[in-house]
Amino acid sequence: MEMKKVTAFAPATVANVSCGFDILGFAVDSLGDRVTVSLNDTNEIRVTRIEGDNGKLPLAIDKNTCGVAVNAMLKAMDFKGGVDIELYKGLPLGSGMGSSAASAVAALVATNRLLGNPFEKAALLPFAIESERVACGAGHADNVSPALLGGFVLIRDYHPLDVIPLNVPRGLYCTLVHPHLVLNTADSRSVLKQHVSLKDATTQSGNIAGLVAGLYQEDMELISRSLNDVIAEPSRSILIPGYEEMKEAIKTAGALGCGISGSGPTLFILSPTEEIAWEVSRRSQAVYEKVGLPIDVYVSAINTRGAYVVEEKK
């Protein structure tokens, strides 16, 4: 096998999508991580370089999501050679934008190409899920699935894994609002109720079904009515300053709705047009100027491509 380098990109993602706690996610454009992989002659997997993390991420392959994902993949194919991994972070850590998932997925897509594409794209998912156990203590798929496959994704079940790509309505846009604070997934999960009432479970189920139906019917009003989380958001929103004020500010702008991206602190707003997506971004900025908390704002179409190879070098 020729010695070469392959670089892949994997996008940021929004998990949960309000009512779809742990079972829904979608990918966004432009924002994401890049990973470059190459063969080495040591018969070891090594994370040799990380940029953009301010020195916070570990190089050890059993603690780095790239290393865990690639190691799982190589074990599955009984590959005995060595691979060097270089990670270039484009996503902030602890942001709720699927940072750990993007790193792992980009590493898998790059390594798969490096080794001659032994796996179909969707077959890489179990390896990516393994990497999430290192990042957040559990093997969730609601970030890694859309990062890999693109678009909206439903995780119907884990045993066995049943991941279903959903329709992406034409014209749908997302605004991401990232307050400059860090929320660990473990902390965000610690505030969740351990028991859910029958009333809330019924309401949540109806909203999930409505959101999926709205995506397929391209019914923006139905999507809007369904973007309501009665289980996680009431507890998690208190951890994010300015959220309720922003939610109120965008009501008259024509947005479909908003929610907490993953475990936060990033917030997402879905809009039926790009123009509205930019308007709610301006309103969000005005809210956070009053709150006194710096934010980053991104406007993006829904990414239907997912992760892909950027460059190959011999």
Results as ranks from 00 to 15, higher is better:
Y158N: 11
V163S: 00
H180W: 14
S103N: 13
G81F: 07
N167Q: 12
G81L: 08
N167G: 02
L183P: 01
S190I: 14
D84E: 13
L124I: 10
P169R: 11
S99L: 11
L124T: 09
S99W: 07
M97A: 05
A147Y: 05
N112F: 03
E132Y: 01
V83G: 04
L172Q: 12
D142L: 10
A128N: 00
V109M: 06
D162K: 07
I129R: 01
V177S: 06
F152I: 10
F119V: 12
A122G: 07
L172C: 12
S95M: 04
G90N: 08
G96S: 03
L183C: 06
Y88C: 09
P126L: 08
L149W: 04
D142C: 01
V83E: 02
F119C: 05
P118I: 12
A122S: 14
E130W: 01
R156T: 00
F152T: 09
R156Y: 00
G94M: 09
A123S: 14
A107I: 07
T111V: 12
A101V: 01
L91W: 03
V177Q: 12
V191E: 10
L172A: 12
A128V: 07
A102F: 00
A101C: 09
F79E: 12
L181K: 08
A104Y: 05
S95N: 03
P179E: 11
D162I: 09
P179T: 15
S100W: 03
L172N: 13
M97L: 15
P146N: 08
G81E: 07
Q194G: 15
L148G: 06
V109T: 08
